Simulated assay, not measured.
Amino acid sequence: MGFNRKFLFSIVLLVVAVPLMGNAFVWNVGDAAGWSGQAQFDYDNWAGRRTFLVGDDSLRLVYDPNTTNVMEVSYCDFKSCNPSSPLATYNTGNDTVPIPLF
Score class of each variant (00 low, 15 high):
residue 1 M to G: 14
residue 2 G to Y: 05
residue 2 G to F: 05
residue 3 F to M: 04
residue 4 N to M: 09
residue 5 R to D: 07
residue 5 R to Y: 08
residue 5 R to S: 08
residue 8 L to I: 06
residue 8 L to R: 07
residue 9 F to Y: 05
residue 10 S to E: 04
residue 10 S to G: 15
residue 11 I to Q: 02
residue 12 V to D: 02
residue 12 V to L: 13
residue 13 L to S: 10
residue 14 L to E: 04
residue 15 V to H: 03
residue 16 V to M: 13
residue 17 A to Q: 03
residue 17 A to M: 09
residue 17 A to V: 09
residue 19 P to G: 07
residue 20 L to M: 09
residue 21 M to W: 08
residue 23 N to C: 07
residue 24 A to M: 08
residue 25 F to C: 06
residue 26 V to Y: 08
residue 26 V to G: 05
residue 27 W to T: 01
residue 28 N to A: 14
residue 28 N to S: 12
residue 29 V to T: 06
residue 29 V to R: 00
residue 30 G to N: 03
residue 31 D to S: 15
residue 33 A to C: 02
residue 33 A to L: 07
residue 33 A to E: 12
residue 34 G to V: 07
residue 35 W to K: 01
residue 36 S to A: 14
residue 36 S to C: 09
residue 36 S to K: 14
residue 37 G to W: 00
residue 38 Q to F: 11
residue 38 Q to Y: 11
residue 38 Q to E: 13
residue 38 Q to S: 11
residue 39 A to R: 08
residue 39 A to Q: 10
residue 39 A to L: 10
residue 40 Q to L: 12
residue 42 D to V: 06
residue 44 D to H: 00
residue 46 W to F: 15
residue 48 G to A: 13
residue 49 R to S: 14
residue 49 R to T: 13
residue 49 R to V: 01
residue 49 R to Y: 01
residue 49 R to F: 00
residue 50 R to T: 00
residue 51 T to R: 10
residue 52 F to K: 09
residue 52 F to Y: 14
residue 52 F to M: 13
residue 52 F to D: 09
residue 53 L to T: 13
residue 54 V to E: 08
residue 54 V to A: 13
residue 55 G to L: 12
residue 55 G to V: 09
residue 56 D to M: 10
residue 56 D to F: 04
residue 58 S to D: 11
residue 59 L to P: 00
residue 61 L to A: 15
residue 62 V to W: 04
residue 62 V to M: 04
residue 63 Y to E: 09
residue 63 Y to W: 10
residue 63 Y to S: 12
residue 63 Y to D: 11
residue 66 N to G: 15
residue 67 T to H: 13
residue 68 T to L: 14
residue 69 N to S: 14
residue 69 N to G: 08
residue 69 N to Y: 14
residue 69 N to I: 13
residue 70 V to M: 05
residue 71 M to R: 14
residue 72 E to M: 11
residue 72 E to P: 01
residue 73 V to M: 07
residue 75 Y to N: 10
residue 75 Y to K: 05
residue 77 D to S: 12
residue 77 D to C: 07
residue 77 D to F: 05
residue 79 K to N: 10
residue 79 K to T: 13
residue 80 S to L: 06
residue 80 S to R: 11
residue 81 C to I: 07
residue 81 C to T: 09
residue 82 N to Q: 10
residue 83 P to E: 03
residue 84 S to I: 03
residue 85 S to I: 04
residue 85 S to R: 07
residue 85 S to L: 05
residue 86 P to L: 02
residue 86 P to R: 02
residue 87 L to S: 03
residue 88 A to T: 08
residue 88 A to K: 12
residue 89 T to A: 08
residue 90 Y to H: 14
residue 90 Y to F: 15
residue 91 N to D: 08
residue 91 N to V: 03
residue 93 G to V: 04
residue 94 N to C: 03
residue 94 N to M: 02
residue 95 D to E: 07
residue 95 D to A: 11
residue 96 T to K: 02
residue 97 V to Q: 02
residue 97 V to H: 01
residue 98 P to T: 04
residue 99 I to K: 02
residue 99 I to G: 02
residue 100 P to A: 02
residue 100 P to T: 00
